[in-house]
Structure formats: C-alpha cells, structure tokens
Write a protein that binds this DNA or RNA. Structure first.
Lengths: 263, 263
DNA sequence: TGATATTGTCTTACGCTGTAAAGAATTGGT
DNA sequence: ACCAATTCTTTACAGCGTAAGACAATATCA
C-alpha cells in the first residue's frame, strides 16, 4: 500500500476544487470551445474505475477512455492525478450518514457509525490508500469528523480524550475493513479460494517445517480447533473471521471507552 | 496503499525460499559460474532500499544497482518481485522480540509488545503495505503470532476471543504506526512543516468556507483548544499527537480486554 | 586437451505509467 | 475577417516488471 500524500501541488487551487469554488467567478463566457466535461464527471468516472478495478487500475488514460477523451484532456479540469485522488476521496465520503440518533445513547450511535464506516471502506477500499496523516480537508471529510465527534461528545469526556478515541476507532475500523476487503478480493484477484489456498500451504508447511508444532505450539493448538470448521454463512472462511474480529474488537473498544468514561 | 498479495507465483517455491530450504540439496556443484550473490544479500539490499526511500523506490533495477548487477541478474535468485517482497517481509520480522516476561502479568507484557511492534512498523513502514489477509507464513511471521498469542493466553480467555483480540491489536497498532510514520516522513517528502502546512490551509479554509464554524461547530471548538499549542517535545505537532493517540488508544484497548476477561 | 553442458549475467524489447510541450480545432468578441 | 482564448490531441520521455535471447564463465567427460 503506497501512502498517497494529500494535495501535491498548489494547496489553494486544490482547496478551491475540493469546495467547488470556481477560481474565477467572472470570465465564464469568453471565446474558445465550451468544456465537454466537468470536475464532477471526471471525479465520478475515476471513482467508478477505482471501485471496479482498484487503485492500481486508476490511470489517467483509463479515466480519459471512460469519458471518450485522451488522458491529457483531463488536465483541463484537474491539475494532476494526486489532486484527482483528493477529490475522489472527499467525494465518496458524502456517502457516510451524518445524523445518528443520540436518543439511545452514545454506545448505540457509535456502534452504528462504526458499522457504516466499515461498510463504506469495504465498498471503496482504495480510500484506505489515502494517507490520514495530513487530511484532505474537504467538506465531506470534515462532515465525517464532525459526526463522530458529536456522538463521542455524548460520553461527557473532554476534547482530548475524545480525539484520541476517535483516532483509535479510525485505526481499528480501517484495519478491519482492509482485511475484510482483501479477503473478499483475494479470490477474485488470485482465483484461489481460501480453502485451496490453505490446503496447498499447509501441505508445503509440513514438508518445510516438520517441527512446526514444537516451534509454534500455541498457534498450532489454536489453529486446530478453529480453522476451517464448516461454516454456514455465504462468506468465505477468512472473510467471516475478519467480520468476527471487527464485531468483537468494536465491542471491546466500546467497553474500553466506558471504562475511561466512568473513571 | 496498494495491497500486495502474498506469494504470487508457485506457493511451493515461495515457501522453500521463505524457510530457506534449497530446492535441491544435491547438485550444488555442477558446471557454470559460481553465484555471486545469495538470497540473503538480495533481500538485504532490497530491505535497505525500502527502509531508506520507501516501497515506491523499490525497483528491481534499484536493487540490482545496489549489488552492482542489472535488474535481470536478480531473477537467478528470486522468481519475481512479489516473492522478493514476501522474503523482505518475513526477514524484518525477525527484529521483533519473542521472549516477553510474563511474571508481571499479561497487561505489562502486551503493553511492551505493542510498543515494540509500533516501533518496528515505524522503522519499516513499507511492511504496512503487505496485505495481512493471506499471510506470508514465513518462520518469523509465525514467531510474532506465537509470541502475541502466548502473552494473551495469560488472560485465561478462550482461543477464539484471543484471536479476535490479537487481530484488533494488529489493526490498531498498524494504523497508529502508519500515521506516526507518515507524519514523520511528510516533512521529508513534501518539505513543508506541520505548522506551515496548517497555516496555509487554514487561511484558504476561511476564504473557501467562511461558514465553517457554523457547519462544523464541534471540530471547530475542539480544534481551537488543542491544535498547535507550543510543544516541548522534539516531535512535530502531528507526530506527538499521533503518539498520544497510540498511547491512550492502547490503554483503552487493554481496559477493554480486562472487561472481556472479567465478564 | 577439447568439447559439452550448465549456469550467472547482460542486452534488448514490450506495453504500461504521469505529464511536459506543442499544435490543431473550435468558439466569441471586435 | 481577424484575434485571442480555450478544449483537446499528438508526440515524447524516463521510469516500471520481466520475457527472450545472447554471451561468458566454469566443471565434467571423452
């Protein structure tokens, strides 16, 4: 996963695009051909490609082709690919709900929010490749932050603990969502099911590390009583396991918040 | 971050390399020139490049150059780049300690382990780009899993909860380490300090969203009383903040484990 | 000793990437 | 009719992983 730093290029220009403030409010009627595309159509096409085939399939040529243009035509609308990714990133976050019911308490609300965020990330796994370190600062990203902080504010905790908890939730949810998304796509990408994958490797493992059970007794014991029990769900084994880790991990973190709160 | 799936190519060949079992124990004295490199020298050179300049600078040509060879010379030792990354991945994990003192209880031990893992990831941030979904299954990766499970086994919990907790810890620690590493490298890569970065954007923000405080009242309020207080530490503001999030989030998760344990 | 088979390494080549530079085509204002 | 502005295309460059083929070095066998 290559960390993609937000906003390579002129920050002002990027922000104007993110918040859709045309740089020059006049001058939108001069000579020259009318633009055949808009920022939104370009961003939308790029999002479709990233959703369908992943971030590594997102090329300027591919986006251009989807819009019946060449790659270079896009540079009329967008300064470079890095900014395009920022715009995609902020655009999809509009999918996240903002109005969670606080009537049933912070725990129910944050649980719902976390589930929605995890679903969001698994719908758009490429979003996880955008660095969180220096945020994009678009309107929809800000709305997501505002939403989680508003829910956590119900805990009665101070601002700094709330920011730490929000960061912790993001770390956990992003990691869980990434694993869920990767287990899901692993079959599509490699064409090998979890069962096949494990079957082949466990055979080679015995050949290559005959002393495995002695060297790693606990994971051997834990593996034997958990791995590849027949499961009823329609999910692959690993995906079901990843989903369980999310559910249980989330509950554990909420318990931890409760402890912090009542201390 | 592009998810890199482990073991593209023949799984058996990859496992033999990971566990350093030469495919053919005989036949190591035939005609032809003697090999000038070894798997280890190649993997080591690749790790150095990834550590120094990041995963996106890791190219076969770059590794070859560091060893005074061409890119193609490496294919004598390694089937392809994907397998090279698997070998790098498992190799560096040997840095993780395995013998944590359980005398002071699981909480102290897991706290130490988590800190070590976070440090490990920030030393080798490229490791975070290797997918966790289908593990590499090398000896050192297995040792890391065995270690964390051995510590968590001290909680007295059942295997499945322990696996969920271990997964939760990995998700959280990876996310925290990634943010720490990215805040650290953001300055090097972009040449812009956190303060400059924020100064520019907050100015443009006022221009582009004059109603920001009304639209996002809580993050406005929370921001005002926390952001960019002068800090004494040698860390950048964001890095110190990311480190705080790790420390507090870890404590919170450990509290959550305690709750699960005593329920 | 000379031939042969085997192996390490290099060169070349292909299709992909982001985007700089330059030119063609289209349009509105004068 | 001309000009200036704007959209869009073409071409080009250096980088990527790696397939194919050539070449050089070496140990074994006749």
């Amino acid at each position: 996963m290559v960390a993609i730093y937000a906003s390579q290029g002129d920050p002002r220009e990027t922000m104007l695009l993110l918040w859709r403030k045309p740089a020059d409010p006049e001058a939108r009627s001069g000579p020259g051909p009318k633009p055949g595309l808009t920022i939104d159509t370009v961003v939308e096409a790029a999002i479709e490609i990233a959703d369908e085939k992943g971030m590594e399939a997102l090329s300027m040529r591919a986006v251009g082709e989807r819009l019946d243009r060449t790659a270079m035509a896009l540079y009329t609308y967008i300064p470079n690919k890095s900014v395009l990714i920022d715009l995609m990133f902020d655009q999809v976050q509009a999918e996240m709900p903002t109005g969670y019911d606080l009537g049933r308490g912070w725990r129910a609300a944050i649980g719902e929010w976390a589930g929605d965020l995890c679903d969001f990330y698994t719908r758009h796994p490429w979003v996880l490749q955008v660095s969180e370190a220096r945020p994009v600062l678009g309107p929809n990203e800000n709305a997501v932050y505002e939403t989680v902080v508003r829910i956590l504010n119900e805990t009665g905790l101070e601002p700094r603990p709330i920011l730490h908890i929000s960061g912790t939730l993001f770390h956990f949810i992003r990691g869980a969502a990434q694993t869920i998304a990767e287990t899901r796509s692993a079959l599509e990408v490699t064409g090998v099911s979890d069962e096949e994958w494990w079957h082949v490797r466990s055979a080679v493992m015995h050949e290559v590390a005959p002393d495995f059970a002695e060297r790693f007794p606990l994971i051997t014991a834990f593996g034997e009583q958990g791995v590849f029990e027949p499961i009823e769900s329609s999910l692959s084994y690993f995906e079901a396991e990843a989903q369980d880790t999310f559910d249980n991990g989330l509950a554990l973190i909420l318990d931890g918040i409760e402890v912090t709160r009542t201390r």
